[in-house]
């Protein structure tokens, strides 16, 4: 889906911001889309390399059926080159280099979810944009069967495929990898398309949560974080949950230390001060701000330890204590 044919069997992929021009026999930057005789094929369709059952908190989605399970699917490939990637063995490899490749066509995948009574299917681990056709077909089918669909993405896909997929989407988690081109250079990518995506998801009224992985020296400038929070407030509103996530050395950034917890807490304070209602700290198990608090009465609404929900005081989408409405998908 989404490509143009040029002269001499060249094609231009229209899926993500890169718009790779791909000569015959080659693949795009995501390593998943191959030009065979002037037609662009997805080489990972129906061939996931990771299929797991996770808690929805791991996505992370904090305002989405708390404590429920999701069936997660990932393949090889990604259109980014994040030097800190935690899933590089999937995302930064081609399908031929995978330790596992399963044969799981969309019907079978949906069947798995139904059989295990999992209410939601999720596309995560690597970049769903890079296996879009597979995501799209599963999502369409799953919606027919009454399942919910969420995905976790870097958000750098183009408006047309985005809007098409949102038709069959309930919730999205977007990694906002910083708020400067410099931060995005660390991923060999660009900020602008991600902001465009955030606005579209918001406008289409789909549930959106944002993750900001704070990496020392790369994107931990507090002024930059403030600017990001203000942008979110002005463009998406104060009710979009924002997760500050802790970085641990990985892949090509092993020389950096883990993010100091104090940095995350400072970021938290900034975001709250700017006026964002739902801010949390992730990847720090047991931290107070793993939990969700009511923006009105300040009481703890969802008590989490890491990915585990210990208590939930949201009733009918409202704070049980003060009646404040809490946005999200609760049932």
């Amino acid at each position: 889906m989404f490509y143009k044919v040029l002269v001499g069997n060249e094609v231009q992929c229209q899926m993500c911001f890169r718009k790779c021009i791909i000569p015959e026999g080659r693949r795009g930057a995501c390593r998943n889309r191959e030009n065979r005789k002037g037609k662009l094929y997805s080489v990972v369709y129906g061939r996931p390399s990771a299929v797991h059952i996770d808690p929805v908190e791991k996505e992370p989605q904090y305002h989405f059926l708390p404590g429920s399970e999701i069936l997660c699917i990932g393949t090889a490939g990604c259109n980014f080159r994040c030097r800190h990637c935690h899933n590089w063995h999937l995302s930064q490899r081609s399908i031929e280099e995978m330790a596992y490749v399963y044969d799981l066509m969309p019907e079978k995948a949906v069947e798995q979810a139904l059989k295990n009574k999992i209410p939601t299917m999720s596309f995560t681990y690597n970049e769903p944009t890079s296996f879009y056709e597979y995501v799209y077909d599963i999502a369409k089918l799953a919606k027919e069967k009454g399942l919910r669909i969420i995905w976790h993405s870097n958000g750098a896909l183009n408006p047309a495929p985005l809007k098409e997929l949102l038709k069959y989407t309930d919730g999205v988690t977007i990694d906002l990898k910083g708020f400067s081109q410099r931060a995005y250079d660390n991923s060999s990518a660009e900020l602008e398309p991600v902001l465009r995506t955030l606005k579209i998801i918001n406008k289409e009224g789909k549930w959106l949560e944002i993750v900001n992985l704070v990496i020392p020296t790369i994107n931990d400038d507090l002024e930059e974080i403030r600017k990001m929070c203000i942008w979110i407030k002005e463009n998406l509103g104060v009710d979009v949950p924002l997760h500050f996530s802790r970085f641990f050395p990985a892949y090509r950034l092993t020389q950096l230390p883990p993010t100091p917890i104090s940095t995350l807490e400072k970021a938290y304070e900034i975001a709250r001060k700017v006026g964002l209602n739902y801010v949390s700290i992730g990847n720090v198990p047991g931290h107070k701000y793993n939990s969700t608090f009511c923006p009105k009465c300040g009481k703890k609404l969802i008590h989490r330890t890491h990915f585990m929900v210990l208590s939930n005081d949201i009733e009918d989408g409202k704070c049980r204590f003060c009646g404040q409405e809490i946005p999200g998908i609760w049932k």
Partner: peptide, 13 residues
């Protein structure tokens, strides 16, 4: 052994 060209806006990988 991957490179990213920074010459033009395509920034080819």
């Amino acid at each position: 052994n991957e490179t990213q060209c920074l010459m033009c806006p395509r920034k080819c990988l």
